[in-house]
């Protein structure tokens, strides 16, 4: 990375924070004029997936560990929060943090064997581990098996995170989640950890020679990432009111969690939000316009979009926002020599 004077970095950080505040404010007033339930749902899902993708981005983007099994943490969060509510009466406003803790712990448990692998091997291992958990969940009657669980409803309240007559509270819950995930990404970008993780991602050997400890770094990223995804799962369970292994632990969901970050820009602060703002409406609208289940044209559009963005914009849509950075002086000198 080119060496910038310290105050330039600080100025950029302050600009990012101001932009974040402005976007948060805009998203907070956005739902006020919107009465249409379909659009409300679209925005809520986009915010939820922006947060989830940012959670994925912390491990996949900054730390470079491409997980194809984040539905596992999402599912654990949803199940733990719902089961605590159902069996122990713990209100989901607290239960979602229990879900997040459980999911973070699970991420550590999965990471310990899987982080010995790298690249594709790691990606496949996460995919298989999540699939094992999915199969076990399907066959485990205590957590509802394949039939799933209904979230009990007592009364509309913030304590229970339960609202049946209006979607608006969920807008703010999803917004708070997305904002928290964004802020986690912001803190990580500027912290010692963030620099260590990115160094490790770009060159593990060099990072190690600079005393970056690889396994603990990956474990830290995994627990933060998994924990956030778990909280997202708990929010989803409250929003939908029903969970089963297919809706919260499937392979498709793992991909949906990773995709906004990929489309928007892996390892960037704004990529996941940008990607979710593009991906969620496209998938929802194409599904409802093109006739839904059985037709398949929505999947074709979706798949083609992923391929196109990955090939044409490997750095994601966020790279459109910022003009191409000047190559570092060394590269310029090399180019000059070559010319």
């Amino acid at each position: 990375m080119a060496k910038l004077p310290d105050n330039a970095i600080l100025r950029r950080r302050r600009r990012e924070l101001a932009a974040g505040g402005a976007v948060l404010l805009a998203l907070a007033v956005l739902p006020l004029p919107i009465a249409d339930v379909y659009t409300q749902n679209l925005i809520i899902m986009a915010l939820l997936f922006a947060g989830l993708a940012q959670a994925w981005n912390i491990l996949g983007g900054y730390c470079g560990q491409i997980s194809l099994g984040h539905a596992l943490y999402f599912g654990i969060g949803g199940y733990v929060s719902t089961l605590l509510f159902l069996r122990a009466g713990l209100p989901p406003s607290l239960g979602m943090f229990a879900g997040g803790l459980a999911a973070g712990a699970a991420a550590l448990l999965v990471g310990w064997p899987c982080f010995r692998l790298s690249g594709h091997y790691y990606a496949i291992a996460t995919l298989v581990v999540a699939q094992i958990a999915y199969l076990l969940a399907l066959n485990w009657d205590f957590i509802g098996g394949a039939t799933g669980l209904y979230v009990p409803f007592h009364a509309e309240s913030w304590g229970d995170l339960a609202f049946r007559t209006t979607k608006r509270p969920f807008h703010y819950i999803a917004l708070a989640f997305a904002a928290a995930a964004w802020f986690a990404g912001y803190l990580i970008e500027g912290s010692r950890w963030g620099y260590a993780w990115r160094a490790m991602r770009d060159d593990p050997v060099a990072a190690r020679s600079l005393a970056v400890r690889l396994l603990p770094s990956k474990m830290a990223a995994a627990s933060i990432s998994g924990g956030l995804a778990g909280i997202g799962g708990a929010i989803f369970a409250q929003y939908v009111g029903y969970i089963d292994p297919d809706s919260v632990m499937s392979l498709q969901l793992s991909i949906l969690i990773a995709l906004p970050a990929v489309i928007g820009g892996v390892g960037t602060l704004w990529g996941p939000l940008l990607g979710a703002a593009v991906q969620v409406p496209i998938s929802e609208v194409s599904r409802s316009w093109l006739g839904g289940a059985g037709r398949g044209s929505d999947l074709m559009i979706y798949g083609a979009l992923i391929v196109t963005v990955a090939l044409l914009r490997p750095a994601g849509l966020a790279s459109l926002l910022r003009p191409a950075r000047r190559p570092p002086p060394a590269a310029e000198a090399r180019n000059a020599n070559a010319a």
Binding site: I66, L68, A293, L299, M300, G303, I306, V307, P314
Partner: peptide, 30 residues
């Protein structure tokens, strides 16, 4: 591609897989 090569490989083939699933559903139904 210049950046994110490992990730691009994964998601290009993944996207192709999703496309083919949709195409099969389109042609043959579910």
């Amino acid at each position: 591609v210049a950046t994110n090569r490992g990730m691009v490989q994964i998601f290009v083939t993944f996207g192709l897989g999703i496309f083919l699933t949709g195409a099969a559903q389109f042609v043959f139904g579910g």
